[in-house]
């Protein structure tokens, strides 16, 4: 299978379109026959990554690649960056504003959900330099971190 690639631009605070990249990815994976349990894991990661870029970032870029052995989600933005990645990975830690919390964001579960549901997650971020999160999902069941 030739590699399938798709990318989306994410606008800061654009809630009218937030979630559409993730829904498009979900539809694409269904069309090419990826198993439902794996699509659900990718959907959680895509949604969390997309919402992080929309709520915290600027000029977000959302990219998916499906090749013979894995799916790669690569989500980056030019936002404020993450000051302390270790702290950001703690369940319940959030820098969301009161406004976002009222909308149901800021549970401090986004990054932990992404790590739990991907087979590998790498974060590159520096304060003031934006954030890039790359998640990988294996297409061969034997090399998966988890199956839930």
């Amino acid at each position: 299978m030739a590699a399938l690639k798709k990318s989306f631009q994410l606008k800061s605070r654009d809630f009218m379109h937030a979630g559409e990249a993730s829904i498009s990815v979900q539809n694409m994976l269904k069309q090419i026959g990826i198993e439902p349990a794996l699509i659900r894991r990718v959907a959680i990661c895509a949604y969390e990554g997309e919402m992080n870029a929309v709520t915290h970032g600027e000029n977000g870029n959302f990219r998916i690649e499906v090749n013979t052995d894995k799916i790669i989600l690569d989500i980056s933005d030019e936002g404020p960056g993450i000051e302390d990645i270790e702290k950001a990975m703690e369940k319940g830690f959030s820098t969301a504003t009161e406004e976002y919390r009222e909308m149901g964001f800021g549970a401090g579960m986004g990054l932990p959900n992404m790590e739990t549901n991907s087979d590998r997650m790498d974060i590159e971020s520096e304060k003031g330099q934006g954030t890039r999160v790359v998640m990988r999902f294996s297409l061969s069941p034997g090399s998966r971190k988890n199956e839930t």
Partner: peptide, 13 residues
């Protein structure tokens, strides 16, 4: 929750 972000969650789940 009543704002539009609930729809994407419903579609994805």
């Amino acid at each position: 929750q009543v704002h539009q972000n609930i729809v994407a969650v419903a579609v994805l789940r």
